[in-house]
Design a protein around this nucleic acid. Structure first.
Length: 595
RNA sequence: GGUUUCGUAGUUCAAUGGAUAGAAUAGAAGUUUCCUAAACUUUUGAUGCAGGUUCGAUUCCUGCCGAGACCA
């Protein structure tokens, strides 16, 4: 279905050509929503054509309006206010639009085909030394939602996770567990695996700090003490053993990482997300060394006097970046270069979206530029979805100060709050226990997910642990509630098929408004895909739900006596429910039939 | 210090350079013999400061003030 804007744009192009003798791009035509104070369904901004017409904005608008009224039968009337041409479309247009939308069961999504672009989305990418927290939650929800949105926009999508399963951090946990763990396992203690490993990471830190303190008292500087503490040296020794393939170290490593994966799997499941492929850094960390050779050969990289290999990006207003240390060890950038190249070989993606926090902005700029310099044209398709940090009222979450908001705990709290409200409303009586649990889960998760996703990803967001996430107003549960209302009407209608409406009467204001909003869904999906912003879908869905509730108040559905009006309203209610469900699926939020 | 992002009602969020800056929440006042009141209606309240570009600036540019991030 062609969008309303593109239909009118085409006529504006020909109007400008025949009236002002100038060719313009149809993409340059700008519309805006009509101000409610004036009559109209869509508004054309006239200012860009004032110079072409040589007349004032009002006269220019009149000319364009006359042309459209004559040439485009769906225009019922127009008016010009200042430089704005307000266009009113015919009732017939909106009625036929609604019928098209109603018929389309996959409304809002474009099926991908063989030649659709392949987009790889990397998200989550956790370390294996601690449980997931609210910051990870934002990452995970964004990654999942963006993937769904890209799919709906007609892309083939591959969701990947790159787990940081090796390095000094996991060695610290391993060492602490060996020293003070007494063989504790998730089974023996009942502790979730990622929490268990996280506990020993903290334990390491505690003992390490004591050692540093003691060393400092014996006269060492801060820096020396931090380097010379026996524990850290032992952890480093462990890492070297790991790299050398020491069987015992590798076995412990595999065991403890296994615990963490079980813990993560539980949280991912609760959050309703999954991956098509999981990469492990233990496999990818060696990648990238060949890239260094390649870069040196192509004279893109330079070997410094101390032996370190660098890429000079000063021409691009960035620094020199070290890619290989003077001791020959690689840095993150080396691995990421190698991983990107490997991935593109295996899955020749058109786009690779990295969902990573904005503290890595510099890193991804360098990554893309460096790949470009090496001649990999596909690097143009690399995109860093740089999201803002989740902050607490007094700043960043700090694990040291114990202010980290744990993901599992937050999920539980949300489910509990949903349960308390449901019980208070008393609408769940008669439900089976498992049905109730499912409902509380859906509602709690809707509140959490919507709270996070409705904020523009680029912006930092604030979470106040003292005030629980709201279930009223502009929230996920409000929209779920609207869906449940729609479904309730539908059940009570006792119809089995959707009535084909013949709308003989004029549309009520709220009916027309709903059709207009429904009409905007495909555009919202495409915009969200272009911007990689689930927030646009959240805002869209809120507008739809809010308007439906107004309609619900103003227009009876089941009690309407005129059969054709009743059928139309039922069809409208059905379409609203279906669209809310589709839109929320793009956010990874499920909607209940009743609540 | 260098680079960079961000400052919008009391609070949390909106606004491809477009009309009178929207919502939610908190505050005030209403709506239930009527399809789910997790709703609806009315109301109070905001663009950090100073310039510039533009027919038009929350949005673009410059400076200042304030907060964060990255790099040393």
């Amino acid at each position: 279905m062609q969008s309303l804007e593109s239909i009118i744009s085409a006529y504006i192009v020909s109007a400008v050509e025949s009236l002002f003798n100038t060719k313009i791009e149809s993409g340059s035509v700008t519309f805006s929503a009509t101000n409610p104070a004036f009559e109209g369904d869509i508004t054309l901004v006239v200012f860009p054509y004032v110079k072409l017409s040589g007349k004032n904005p009002e006269q220019t608008g009149q000319l364009l309006g006359d042309y459209l009224l004559k040439e485009l039968p769906t225009i019922a009337s127009y008016n010009v206010v200042k430089g704005f041409l307000n266009l009113l479309l015919t009732e017939e247009f909106w009625k036929s639009r609604f019928n098209i939308i109603l018929e389309d069961n996959a409304y809002g999504s474009i099926e991908s085909g063989e030649h659709s672009p392949l987009v790889m989305v990397e998200y989550s990418s956790p370390n294996t030394n601690k449980p997931l927290h609210l910051g990870h939650t934002r990452n995970i929800l964004l990654g999942h939602s963006v993937s769904e949105i890209l799919k709906a926009a007609g892309n083939k999508v591959m969701k990947v996770n790159l787990v940081n399963d090796r390095g000094i951090h996991i060695c610290k946990s391993m060492l602490a567990w060996k020293n003070w763990g007494n063989g504790e396992t998730p089974e023996s203690s009942g502790l979730k695996g990622d929490f268990l490993v996280g506990k020993y990471y903290v334990e390491f830190d505690r003992h390490y700090k004591e050692e540093i303190k003691a060393l400092k008292e014996s006269g060492l500087s801060d820096e020396e003490a931090a380097k010379k503490a026996p524990l850290i040296m032992e952890a480093q020794q462990m890492l070297r053993k790991w790299e050398a393939g020491d069987i015992k170290v590798k076995a412990l490593w595999a065991k403890m990482n296994g615990w963490v994966y079980d813990g993560f799997a539980y949280t991912y499941k609760k959050l309703g997300v999954n991956f098509d492929k999981i990469y492990y850094e233990s496999n990818t960390y060696i990648l990238g060394k060949e890239i260094i050779e390649e870069g040196l050969k192509k004279n893109v990289f330079v070997k410094r006097a101390d032996g370190a290999v660098i890429v000079d990006l000063t021409a691009e207003k960035l620094d020199e970046k070290v890619l290989l240390r003077s001791d020959g060890t690689s840095v993150y950038m080396t691995q990421d270069l190698g991983t990107a190249v490997e991935r593109h070989k295996e899955f020749p993606f058109d786009k690779l979206v990295y969902v990573v926090g904005n503290e890595q902005d510099y890193h991804f700029k360098v990554l893309k530029l460096t790949l470009k310099k090496l001649g990999y044209e596909w690097a143009d398709g690399l995109f860093h979805l740089s999201y803002g940090m989740v902050e607490l009222p007094d700043g960043k979450m700090k694990s040291r100060e114990g202010t980290v908001v744990d993901a599992d705990e937050l999920i539980n709290t949300m489910e509990t709050n949903a349960r308390l409200l449901s019980e208070e409303k008393g609408l769940v009586e008669g439900m089976q226990e498992d049905e109730k649990a499912e409902l509380y889960h859906r509602v709690g998760m809707a509140a959490l997910k919507y709270f996070i996703l409705k904020v523009d990803p680029k912006k930092k967001m604030l979470f106040n642990p003292k005030e629980s996430i709201d279930l009223h107003g502009n929230t996920g549960p409000f929209i779920q509630y609207t869906h449940a209302r729609c479904r309730s009407i539908w059940r009570k209608s006792e119809l089995t098929t959707i009535p084909k409406p013949e709308i003989l009467t004029d549309l009520q204001p709220k009916e027309k408004e709903l059709i207009k909003i429904l009409n905007g869904f495909p555009t919202a999906v495409l915009d969200a895909a272009k911007e990689l912003s689930p927030a646009l879908i959240a805002n869209y869905t809120y507008e739809l739900a809010k308007t439906f509730n107004q309609f619900y108040d103003a227009c009876p559905v089941l009690k309407e006596e005129n059969v054709s009006v009743r059928n139309f309203r039922l069809a409208l209610t059905h379409t609203v429910a279906r669209t809310i469900k589709s839109a929320f699926a793009l956010l990874g939020i499920e909607v209940p039939e009743r609540m």
